[in-house]
């Protein structure tokens, strides 16, 4: 199993920080979301939490798919948010603002992750 990649340059350190952030944000979503689902509430949070943690872990392993997983979760959040509250601005605010800001950060990590992934493949090829 592939381990965590070792960041070398500033961009890689920043990517790593974004990945850690995803895991840290995903954990409360997963834990509180699980209780919410058990109490008969929305399943969105536990599912989103799991996806975001998985995305963060994959990113820490240097995989682009981690970033793509986050972006997929973010994209699917839009129809869910609209389904829950419609076009109510105050209602959309907590559901979309934060996740969108983070999506911007995640998009910025994609080129870095691409490079990391390529290098590690090259390294594996050599070995």
């Amino acid at each position: 199993m592939a381990g965590l990649y070792r960041p070398r340059r500033a961009a890689e350190w920043a990517t790593c920080a974004v990945a850690v952030l995803l895991v840290l944000l995903g954990l409360p979503l997963l834990i509180m979301g699980a209780e919410l689902a058990l109490l008969g509430g929305s399943f969105y949070y536990v599912v989103a939490g799991a996806a975001i943690i998985a995305g963060g872990v994959l990113m820490l392993m240097g995989s682009v798919s981690g970033a793509l997983l986050y972006l997929l979760a973010w994209l699917l959040t839009w129809p869910w948010a609209l389904w829950e509250v419609g076009f109510d601005g105050w209602g959309l605010l907590p559901r979309l603002l934060g996740p969108t800001l983070i999506a911007v950060l995640v998009v910025l990590t994609i080129p870095v992750l691409r490079r990391v992934q390529k290098t590690s493949l090259v390294r594996k090829g050599i070995a």
């Binding site: 409360p28 979503l29 919410l36 949070y45 605010l93 907590p94």
Partner: peptide, 22 residues
């Protein structure tokens, strides 16, 4: 309703949804 719960982010919103359900 649970979906009326609010916050700045999904996390504090979730905290209130949980408070609502508890």
């Amino acid at each position: 309703k649970e979906s009326d719960m609010w916050g700045m982010s999904p996390i504090d919103q979730l905290f209130c949804r949980l408070k609502f359900r508890r």
